[in-house]
Simulated assay, not measured.
Amino acid sequence: MAISDDFKEQLKAGRIVDALTLALGEAVELEITTWVSSSKNSEATKSADSEKPAPDSRMRTRMNIVEGAIDTEVGSRFIGNGPYTELRQFHMEQVQQGRQIIQHNLENLQQLFTVLTSTLTHLPQASHRLGDGNSVLPPSNPENIQ
């Protein structure tokens, strides 16, 4: 199940703390990979191993906002006179877009926490139940979650 599906399930079940924990866990790191697949791998012969790019045929950048780290790996076919040097600029544009995505996600999480904090302060003290599945809010209607 995809992380977004897990998030929605947690919200539907009313486990807001679990949903937020899941969202925060995913919000700290972004990985961008640009790779050139081999033409010998046709759709009919793809396997789990053929889906993975060879180190010399990929560029990969990982950004971790908690550690403040950005790690970039550049395969040998993307440097010097390699056949894929023109893709370096494309990869760097994707990294820049990734930074913007992270910034946007952080702004959304900040707004979510603001709304959650405001909501929790307006709830009666008796409804702050964290015992059974750390649910603070009642389960939501599945049709309202997108």
Rank of each mutant, 00 (worst) to 15 (best):
A2K: 15
S4L: 02
S4M: 06
D6Y: 09
D6R: 07
K8P: 00
K8A: 02
E9N: 15
Q10G: 00
A13R: 10
A13D: 04
G14V: 10
G14C: 04
R15C: 08
R15M: 05
V17N: 09
L24T: 12
L24P: 08
G25R: 10
G25F: 05
E31P: 04
T33G: 00
W35P: 06
V36P: 13
S37W: 09
S39F: 13
S39C: 07
K40P: 04
S42V: 14
E43V: 15
T45I: 13
S47R: 10
A48Q: 11
A48I: 14
D49A: 09
D49T: 11
E51A: 05
K52N: 11
K52G: 10
P53I: 02
P53K: 04
A54F: 02
P55M: 01
R58K: 14
M59H: 08
R60Q: 01
R60K: 13
R60V: 07
T61L: 08
R62E: 00
M63D: 00
N64Y: 01
V66F: 03
G68V: 02
G68I: 04
I70N: 01
E73Y: 14
G82V: 07
P83D: 09
T85C: 04
F90L: 04
H91Y: 12
M92D: 06
E93A: 10
V95K: 12
I101S: 03
I101E: 08
I101R: 02
I102E: 01
E107Y: 09
L112F: 05
L112T: 15
F113Y: 11
T114H: 08
V115C: 07
T121K: 13
H122Y: 07
L123D: 03
P124Y: 07
P124C: 00
S127M: 08
G131A: 01
G131I: 07
G131S: 03
S135D: 03
S135P: 05
S135V: 12
E143M: 01
E143G: 06
N144C: 05
I145G: 05
